[in-house]
C-alpha cells in the first residue's frame, strides 16, 4: 500500500475545519487544516499537500488568490474549491483556471469523493 495522500483544508469557518477532516480521514486521507491562506503559505504546505480543499471567501487572502499565487510560484496543488455562496460564474472561471472542482456548501460526501477521485 502506498503512502496515504495528504489533503490540506483551508477554511476560516471552524465548523468546516472540524467536520471535514473526520470525513476525509474516513476516506483514507491524511489531513492538515489551516484557518487562512496566509497560514497555508507560512507552513509551505504546498510541499506536502497532494490536494487542497480551499474556501473561497476568507478574510485576508481569499481562496482564488491563494490558488493564483501558487500557480504563479509554480507550486500548484490540485484544488477543490468550496463556497457558501452559490456563484456559477465564479465556479466556471475557477474551473477554467485549473481548479479540480468547485463545490457549493452544503455538499454531500459523494460529490466530495468524486472530486477527490480526480486528485488520486
Amino acid at each position: 500500500m502506498t503512502k496515504r495522500k495528504q489533503i490540506s483544508v483551508v477554511d476560516d469557518d471552524e465548523s468546516v475545519r472540524e467536520a471535514l477532516p473526520d470525513l476525509l480521514r474516513s476516506f483514507g486521507f491524511d489531513v492538515h487544516t489551516f484557518d487562512s491562506a496566509e497560514a497555508f503559505l507560512r507552513a509551505d504546505a504546498f510541499a506536502f499537500s497532494d490536494g487542497m480543499i480551499l474556501d473561497i471567501a476568507m478574510p485576508g487572502m481569499t481562496g482564488p488568490e491563494l490558488f493564483k499565487e501558487l500557480t504563479r510560484r509554480g507550486n500548484q496543488v490540485p484544488t477543490i474549491f468550496i463556497t457558501a455562496l452559490k456563484d456559477e460564474v465564479l465556479r466556471t472561471r475557477l474551473m477554467k483556471d485549473g481548479a479540480v472542482e468547485c463545490l457549493f456548501k452544503p455538499f454531500g460526501d459523494e460529490e466530495l469523493q468524486v472530486a477527490l477521485a480526480a486528485i488520486d
Partner: peptide, 18 residues
C-alpha cells in the same frame, strides 16, 4: 444570508456524512 445559512448547513451535512 445564504453564506450565513449555508455555512452551518455545510457543517451539518459534512458531520452527518462522517
Amino acid at each position: 444570508i445564504a453564506h450565513e445559512v449555508n455555512q452551518p448547513l455545510a457543517g451539518i451535512v459534512t458531520n452527518a456524512s462522517t
